[in-house]
Design a protein around this nucleic acid. Structure first.
Lengths: 108, 108
DNA sequence: TCGCTAGATAGCTATATGGCTAAATAGCGG
DNA sequence: CCGCTATTTAGCCATATAGCTATCTAGCGA
């Protein structure tokens, strides 16, 4: 996790709309328009928030017909933020890797 | 943890200088000048960063003679950030509360 | 009290951010 | 291809941010 990666992630997290978008994506992917409809701001503004989240590597996009579906990039948020937390208050945070993916990790 | 509390914390974390300050404070309190001397920017700029961190509740200040000592507010960072993480990827983060309220100061 | 040191505050400037509207692009159905 | 829907991109504007210098405040020691 390079330092400028952390930078883009924390910049992305600085905006409440973007934090809410991440939260909304927790239950699964959503189309850009579905996301936009949950906020009082206009589509283009939401679109830019999504672009910022994507640039930070926090979300992925996928085209589905004429919609663009956004989804969380698994682990990315926890790893970036967790790495930072571990440099400031390591005794307080424990990161757990997801098991839903088949990524085999060491025999513990 | 009110939402605007999270807002001030994440805003504070958005700046790399402020993240570094938090990191530097990990080993114990530091005078404003000691902190400033670690950065290429001028004193007043650092002073404002410290004020922002303090407003976010992430650091505390204490006067010692003619110096002002800054220190981490224990738990605050982990609790704020951890609460947010738990709303996005709860299965990945485990928060461990500190066991003692002792202030970590130079043990040597 | 005076002068020194440590920091904070005031005020300025350039850049970044986040909102908007209008226009461009992408895919779909006829 | 045309028109429609979905979304991004382009530009514009107001506000926020982060840096700077100059100045003010607080506490110390002679």
């Amino acid at each position: 996790m390079a330092d400028d990666e952390a930078a883009s992630v924390f910049k992305a997290l600085a905006d409440p709309t973007r934090r809410q978008i991440l939260h909304d994506l927790r239950d699964g992917e959503l189309a850009a328009g579905e996301i936009a409809s949950r906020f009082p701001i206009k589509g283009p503004s939401v679109s830019r928030h999504l672009a910022i989240l994507k640039a930070a590597g926090l979300v992925d996009e996928r085209r589905d017909a004429n919609k663009i579906m956004y989804s969380l990039v698994e682990d990315r948020l926890a790893l970036c933020v967790g790495e930072f937390l571990s440099t400031v208050c390591p005794e307080q945070v424990v990161l757990r890797r997801r098991r839903t993916t088949r990524t085999r990790k060491a025999t513990s």
